[in-house]
């Protein structure tokens, strides 16, 4: 059973809270500390960027809070519930992921044998909607993200940007508390990359869903509410720089 956050905790609107997460691979001479004492609190509707060079531990952090790769120590709260206490899961992680988390990846990661609409529909069905309800919800989401007209296309027939929109729609299918995105714009040009980032902001601000985006793309940092940086497994909050004004 997962444990709720204390009732008098002022962080009632906290979407996700990571406390002192550490991840160690191997042991003895082969021990590698991929993440050390990383903490992050993300409020509902907040859009967070996680920056850092390759190998700094960003993906390790993301997979830990995504309940895919358990931390060696530390605690993870999602939707006011303690889910991970160290490596120990306090609930059925797959079921919890299905209900509370959405994922968007570097490549769109759509199921190739399902059409765009069906890729979203399957996520709705997995969350208990009937086939008809799921189809309606999928079309609503695709409409919301501006690609309803491509619902009958297979992923291979969509552009990179369109695929990412479908992936975002799928991530929203379960009305998640948090969307975790791992370099979602890496395969896109700067224009389409920015469109996707703005999409996350729109979703977060309109639907109250928190978004954590791992990114290398410094051109779109202005869309984020909060910036974090990871280096050598250590996570630090970074001040937002003011936008340069062109004269």
């Amino acid at each position: 059973m997962s444990t709720p956050l204390p009732a008098d905790d002022p962080s009632a609107k906290i979407a996700i809270k990571a406390e002192s997460l550490t991840k160690i691979y191997g042991a003895g001479n082969t021990e590698v500390v991929a993440m050390r004492d990383a903490s992050m609190t993300v409020m509902a509707g907040e859009v967070v960027a996680l920056l850092g060079p390759s190998g700094s531990g960003k993906s390790t952090f993301l997979t830990a809070v995504g309940l895919i790769n358990p931390p060696t120590s530390g605690k993870i709260y999602i939707a006011n519930q303690l889910i991970m206490d160290g490596p120990k899961a306090l609930t059925n992680l797959r079921s919890f992921r299905r209900k509370h988390l959405g994922f968007v990846f570097q490549k769109s990661n759509l199921i190739p044998f399902l059409k765009a609409g069906e890729n979203v529909q399957i996520a709705c069905e997995l969350n208990g909607l009937s086939s008809r309800q799921a189809r309606i919800r999928a079309l609503e989401l695709l409409d919301y993200l501006g690609i309803k007209d491509r619902s009958q296309s297979y992923p291979s027939m969509l552009s990179g940007g369109q695929q990412q929109r479908v992936a975002v729609a799928r991530a929203l299918a379960n009305r998640p508390s948090v969307i975790l995105a791992d370099e979602p714009t890496a395969a896109l040009d700067s224009f389409r990359g920015r469109q996707v980032m703005e999409l996350f902001t729109k979703v977060a601000h309109e639907q109250g869903t928190s978004v954590i985006v791992v990114t290398h793309d410094h051109r779109s940092l202005d869309v984020f509410d909060t910036l974090y940086e990871m280096e050598d497994g250590k996570l630090t909050q970074k001040a937002k720089e003011p936008l340069a004004v062109a004269h």
């Binding site: 895919i68 797959r94 079921s95 992921r97 299905r98 209900k99 994922f103 990661n109 199921i111 190739p112 044998f113 399957i122 996520a123 997995l126 969350n127 799928r170 379960n174």
Partner: peptide, 18 residues
């Protein structure tokens, strides 16, 4: 051939029965 799709389905919460 479908392993990636299966992993993806697991990630988005598909049960073993699916």
């Amino acid at each position: 051939d479908k392993l990636h799709s299966i992993a993806l389905l697991k990630l988005i919460g598909a049960s073993n029965s699916v």
